[in-house]
């Protein structure tokens, strides 16, 4: 957009961007450098030697995967219903869902806590999976409905004329045709579930149920504030996210920005 005609101006622009990204790089450098201070790679060895680190990962994977599956299934069904099927007072239902978009999760704490203890769900995966999925569904439905509305209705009619039930239309038309938007839903649900801190903090009490966002806290207890080991654990927990992003760069950027772009 900037037009730099002279080589000097071009170097100037390059220099400007470089200076501008330094503050963004700085915390990451501090993180890696801090994790190697003192015992060097020994910090990592110490962190990895703590039993249970794998369990944190496993729990995060289980929770994120469950949330994704739940959100995906429920969203696809609803988006198809909203976009292509006959629903009485459709817009009312839709706005009821959309109103949930603005909901801060902290509002759910007290009622969920009381309900979870009453139903015996406290300290189970469900106590985190259900609210996280519930919070992700409205946005996912909004995106997917808009996407399905872009698919020509004639396609569905042709399928029906040929004798396909709406279930077959769903399985053979909606599922394959919505792949691009499904990828976006997958990514932002993954990030939302994987990075969530409040729900696991409140609803998962036993250490063998907890997720990776609680790892720094766990290590603060484990190493009584040995900062280098805490940072090593932070690097280890951040690594899968960074690798996933680098491998699926396009998908991440599109997924997170899908809502704001036409």
């Amino acid at each position: 957009m900037f037009e730099a005609r002279s080589p000097l101006a071009r170097v100037g622009l390059q220099l400007l961007v470089t200076v501008m990204v330094i503050p963004f790089l700085f915390p990451l450098v501090v993180m890696v450098q801090g994790s190697l201070a003192g015992a060097g790679w020994g910090n990592y060895a110490a962190v990895l030697a703590v039993p249970g680190l794998g369990q944190f990962f496993l729990n995060s994977v289980i929770i994120a995967a469950s949330v994704i599956v739940l959100v995906y299934v429920v969203t696809m069904l609803a988006a198809y219903g909203f976009a292509k099927l006959r629903v009485p007072v459709r817009e009312l239902w839709f706005w009821l869902l959309l109103a949930c978009l603005t909901l801060p999760e902290v509002v759910l704490l007290a009622p969920l806590f009381a309900t979870d203890t009453a139903l015996g769900l406290y300290d189970t995966y469900w106590s985190v999976v259900l609210p996280l999925a519930a919070l992700q569904v409205p946005f996912a439905v909004l995106l997917t409905r808009n996407f399905i509305e872009g698919i020509p209705t004639e396609l569905f009619e042709a399928a029906r004329v040929d004798g396909a039930s709406s279930m077959r239309g769903f399985l053979y038309l909606v599922i394959p045709l919505t792949r691009p938007i499904a990828a976006a839903v997958l990514i932002f649900t993954l990030i939302g579930a994987w990075n969530d801190y409040l729900m696991p903090l409140v609803f998962l009490q036993s250490t063998d149920m907890q997720t990776i966002t609680l790892v720094p806290q766990f290590f603060q207890g484990e190493f009584s504030n040995d900062q280098t080991k805490i940072l090593a654990s932070a690097v280890l927990t951040a690594l899968p996210e960074v690798i996933a992003y680098l491998c699926l760069q396009r998908l991440f950027e599109r997924g997170l920005s899908a809502g704001a772009l036409k």
Binding site: W194, N195, T213, P216, A234, T237, V242, A244, Y245, F252
Partner: peptide, 10 residues
């Protein structure tokens, strides 16, 4: 993509 909870100690 990094969790705020993980970056907090940093």
């Amino acid at each position: 993509v990094l969790a705020p909870a993980i970056m907090a100690p940093v």
